[in-house]
Design a protein around this nucleic acid. Structure first.
Length: 173
DNA sequence: ACGATGATGAAC
DNA sequence: TTCATCATCGTA
């Protein structure tokens, strides 16, 4: 019996969900085949005040998805060549999302989307079992002392407060 | 160390 | 309509 993560998994505190996603598997169905990999690195983008988050610009056509219901994907193009895969968390009207930065088979957010073949068509889609992109709990538990917290990558522009927050979560080793 | 490459948001 | 900027990566 497979345990695909339900929408309520994402309707919790951003940092808790970011930590809990470590050790979970991302499932990508292409045709009859399935690609899966364990999540090893995440980053939290939490709330309208977070200057590193696109949502700090307010509600725009781009950020609208982050203000919506949890469990939806936010995918956008960065540096003109890499798609970033995020999943929206928290209750409706509270803008927050988690960036999937690394898998056991692909390290770096641009490589992640290349590896599981994500593009902007996934923006606004929901992570449910029948979707061709969702998350699964395979019973892997990551003990607390195996989780490393660090500042987020590539967000120096967000100022001394937000760029220094330990919102990045990595499995050690 | 740096260039590729395009969507976004803000200013004009 | 134009402009600076960017949640990165591969090559050097």
């Amino acid at each position: 019996m497979r345990k695909i993560l339900k929408q309520n998994f994402f309707n919790r505190d951003t940092k808790i969900v970011a930590k809990d996603l470590l050790g979970k598997f991302i499932i990508r169905k292409i045709g009859g085949k399935e690609i899966s990999a364990m999540i090893t690195e995440t980053e939290a983008y939490d709330g309208p005040q977070d200057l590193a988050s696109h949502a700090s610009k307010g509600r725009t056509k781009r950020t609208d998805i982050m203000f919506g219901h949890p469990g939806y994907f936010y995918v956008y193009l960065c540096y003109g060549m890499h798609y970033m895969l995020n999943v929206v968390v928290g209750k409706k009207d509270y803008p927050a999302a988690i960036l999937i930065r690394g898998l056991d088979k692909a390290v770096g957010p641009g490589r992640v989307t290349k590896f599981i073949r994500i593009d902007k068509k996934f923006n606004g889609k929901i992570a449910i079992p029948k979707s061709n992109l969702c998350f699964e709990d395979r019973g892997v538990k990551i003990p607390k002392n195996k989780i490393k917290k660090t500042p987020r990558i590539g967000v120096d522009y967000s100022g001394p407060v937000w760029s220094k927050k330990n919102f990045r979560f990595v499995i050690k080793d």
